[in-house]
Design a protein around this nucleic acid. Structure first.
Lengths: 149, 149
DNA sequence: TTATAGACTATAAGTTCTATAGATTTTTAT
DNA sequence: ATAAAAATCTATAGAACTTATAGTCTATAA
């Protein structure tokens, strides 16, 4: 189960992706309001995303946040890795956050690890092939009513 | 990331699956020792699995736990659902533990939900098609040294 | 030089995770 | 009958993580 923090990050990034072509930064307060996210919590999340290179910021009047690169170059998997630490269902399967299972005698023969490896691979395949841009297109495709009236 | 509790449950169930043909119950203390799991914590886990119908128990001398059915009839997915509550990466995607996302205006057009639905489906596909029996076979297949000497 | 907006640090309530302790109940063997 | 064995049940508690909020600091633009 992904955390609210991760979900908030994705919501905010989607909003920034929609504004990407405008070249204008979006302020935290506006993002929080439009996406209905707690403002102070969102601050921390955006800072994190900035420190990981996904966002650029500008202080002072007219400032705010922008995507550091085009929405089609931001895989959802990368976002989740930043917020959750890893995509892996087991610590002993993670590249970024590897940790040995203390009670495990032999990783090489651990069947739990073997099954979960399949899960991780399937998850990675989906999440790293889906960009913010893909997500925007999905939302548009499943929202026909806004256009048909 | 699955919890230690879930991992412990799978380890214990694998051990019980290996003993299934003997028709003899295995005691908590033996399970805890052979799988290197904290005994009192394991008690709670086994009780949970019993209440969900995966295990049968017998009290008193010669008692212990046994699988309620053949290892090939126990999907890993069911075990994880019992311990984690759901396989879903989002509360709004879970059948068993559905919860609306408060900040979400429209589930039908939520792109995060749409991508995560794919992840859930891939995960379910793997975990519900893999039984305890399959796991035992995997472990045997990846452990050739024990047999080749 | 003042208002604006992000950056940073601290804190804290709430929840979940991980685990242990102790008393109780059921069953078997003697 | 009774003693021993083993699961069952209830309570508790520390640690970690999640989900925030508050307040101060720093950079920028008008």
């Amino acid at each position: 189960m992904i955390s609210k923090k991760t979900k908030y990050a994705l919501k905010a990034l989607m909003a920034l992706a929609r504004n990407y072509s405008s070249q204008q930064p979006t302020q935290i307060a506006d993002l929080a309001a439009s996406e209905r996210l707690p403002k102070k919590f969102l601050e921390l999340i955006l800072l994190d995303l900035k420190n990981e290179g996904l966002l650029v910021s500008k202080k002072g009047r007219g400032g705010g946040y922008r995507l550091a690169r085009s929405p089609d170059l931001v895989p959802v998997g990368q976002v989740i890795r930043i917020l959750e630490g890893t995509l892996s269902p087991l610590p002993c399967l993670s590249h970024r956050a590897y940790q040995k299972c203390e009670e495990c005698l032999d990783e090489g023969t651990c069947a739990i690890r073997s099954v979960m490896k399949e899960v991780r691979e399937a998850t990675v395949r989906i999440l790293d092939q889906t960009s913010l841009q893909n997500m925007l297109e999905r939302a548009a495709a499943t929202k026909p009513i806004s256009f048909s009236i």
